[in-house]
Design a protein around this nucleic acid. Structure first.
Lengths: 381, 381
DNA sequence: TTGTAAGCGTTATCAG
DNA sequence: CTGATAACGCTTACAA
């Protein structure tokens, strides 16, 4: 019996090792009694084939289970059918909508999506260009944030014909000619800050994302613009670095709270940092928005069910994805897509994490556990 | 001047339309004064080439900027170098770690990752098998949840040689021979429920994920096992359907609260639903954990900064990703990887969303203490 | 150590 | 409407 088992194992191993049997166009042609070009035509332009021949070929295809070899087809056509999408990490809620948009168009147009995460290895534009040149992909969409490129790229500055589009992301001036689709981050941040000013806040903190990311630096500039435009002026102490991370935002919040005159409102460069900021505020027995108002950026899927629901800047993510992809496909087809950024509309969605300064607690939707309010912050001037 | 502008436009258009100029191995061979096979050898086994020749070829490569055409190489080799990863949606935090694991191994072994989102189109196993047969990918990793397959698959039951591995996901009995790497969901849910029982809770609700997903159904079974094993027994009214979504979980929570004797603890089949559950509890002026304890599943990046920080089941996501990928690569290399699930360890991480039944409010200050409660590992031969 | 030449599966060109 | 045939760029026996 041990012997039988042994034999069976050998048999299974053989089976597993056997190459997957593949039918080529030749066999179909032979069975259908036609030439390989006719089979090819049946697949690619069936209207140019006589009905009876078509039927015969289709029968042969069904009989053999033939499926065209994509490797050969793509090789022959000189196209990979692949779009490389570069992002920091799969699993960040913000990209959900953008990817849905990209995928929708991709599916429509017969492309597949290649994912490249930059979380591990730093993104290098040259690498992506090389991948297009070496036909690993037909084009590149860069969503990576923060800091899309650590070094300036020879390709990017010299060779305009490599199809690359940025989604959401800004880029340093030297690479400013790379086309992008995004919101006007500076303006959106300007408006969000203005909203806090209108609520009567005077000490407004800002938690910046990664300093190396132009995207979040633009949001910082928008915030500074608004402060400058107000009577209050800029105060460098109110700008802290949240480092585009949960831990960084918590640190930044603590830093803001340690100021002699801590802010009564905090604008965070994205929702995730806003979430971390609120967490840290609560830890310090401050309520949101009674003690401190908080504004985020992105409106990710969790913004509406945070406690309190987050006031934040909405980006039309799916639209960004779609337009980025369409613009890239234009470039791939050889059209001139220019280099000007394509802007999409943002808007501020007001929920319950913001309130007028010195509002009495309980005036807004009073959700769940509000903590002791009077404690630590009498010196609100 | 208008004329000049017009000319410039035409020129730019020409430039943009010009095909990307590619160098092939032929040109390198000609410049280096060798044959194309020598160039090929320099690339693939340089040790079999004389030093001087190698140098000459490398010079020619540098001079021309030659990059091997991946399309041709893959075609010739009969391998795509692509792994298709199927998941419900990019942007769901749970997949972050799993994808990091997959990507890490992929990069190491020279593979790229093709993403397929099932959010839009329902996943069909046959389609994935066809993609392997038609050489669009060398293998498939299925992470999709819920409901990986809506129809039984001919390929899956007949042809064992198509490399497919499930990550995290269970699958219906008829497809049980597809190998997987995952935690023992049933056991993990059993233990989480036991923990709530140990805290003295007697009315424990369960918010299930998608009913069509075996994965979450296994968690439900684990919950029911634990209730059955206790003196309390099962109560069908405490099991509600959260539909694997934020909205669904909110509905389910409301349903639980509307019971004559609402639960004092709720176990949610994943963190996202737990977040929605807590949100809804607070909306109804209940505090967590004073009034109701909540347990999640997954330990996503936001679990620790929710309010309150969430007690949840941790899965070693990166390890799952790595092992899933390695197992798939074994299959691709023709080894027999068997069909038994490979189990990885889970553990319950206790934070502040759970408390003994009837705890007096206000005892929440003990922050930051997290402890591992349980671990398990088993291997099925 | 190097060169010659066959061939991977498909599409495209051009006769018939 | 159909068939023969030449590529596409690369790898790999095999020959020199």
């Amino acid at each position: 019996m041990a012997l039988t088992l042994g034999n069976e194992n050998v048999f299974i191993r053989r089976l597993a090792r056997a190459p997957i049997y593949t039918v080529s166009i030749k066999k179909v042609a032979k069975i259908a009694g036609v030439s390989i070009s006719t089979v090819s035509r049946c697949l690619n332009s069936p209207e140019r084939v006589r009905d009876t021949t078509l039927a015969a070929v289709q029968a042969a295809i069904a009989q053999t289970g033939y499926a065209p070899n994509a490797l050969a087809r793509n090789f022959r056509r000189g196209k990979t059918g692949l779009i490389m999408v570069v992002l920091q990490s799969v699993g960040l809620p913000f990209w959900e909508g953008v990817m849905r948009g990209i995928n929708g168009v991709a599916q429509e147009e017969g492309y597949s999506i290649l994912i490249r995460e930059t979380a591990s290895s730093p993104p290098e534009l040259d690498d992506y260009c090389k991948m297009v040149i070496s036909k690993e992909a037909d084009g590149v969409i860069i969503l990576a944030s923060p800091s899309p490129f650590s070094t300036p790229s020879a390709y990017a500055t010299s060779d305009r014909r490599i199809p690359i589009v940025l989604g959401c992301e800004n880029v340093t001036d030297e690479l400013a000619h790379i086309p992008s689709v995004r919101v006007d981050n500076r303006r959106a941040a300007f408006e969000a800050t203005q909203y806090l000013l209108q609520l009567g806040h005077e000490r407004i903190g800002f938690i910046a994302g990664s300093r190396s990311s132009l995207l979040t630096r633009d949001r910082e500039r928008g915030y500074l613009d608004a402060m400058q435009a107000s009577a209050l002026g800029q105060n460098r102490a109110w700008v802290t670095n949240g480092d585009q991370s949960i831990e960084g935002a918590r640190r930044a919040t603590r830093k803001l709270l340690s100021l002699a005159e801590p802010p009564t409102a905090i604008f965070c460069a994205n929702d995730e940092m806003a979430m971390a900021c609120i967490y840290e505020l609560k830890r310090n027995n401050l309520s949101v928005p009674q003690d401190v108002s908080v504004v985020g950026f992105d409106d990710t899927r969790y913004a509406a069910i945070m406690d309190p629901p987050l006031t934040t800047v909405v980006q039309p993510t799916e639209e960004i994805g779609e337009r980025t992809m369409r613009r890239l496909l234009s470039a791939i087809e050889g059209r001139d897509i220019g280099q000007a950024p394509e802007f999409v509309e943002h808007r501020l969605i007001v929920r319950e994490s913001t309130a007028p300064r010195q509002t009495a607690p309980g005036s807004t939707q009073d959700v769940g556990s509000t903590q002791d309010v009077d404690g630590s912050r009498q010196q609100i001037a």
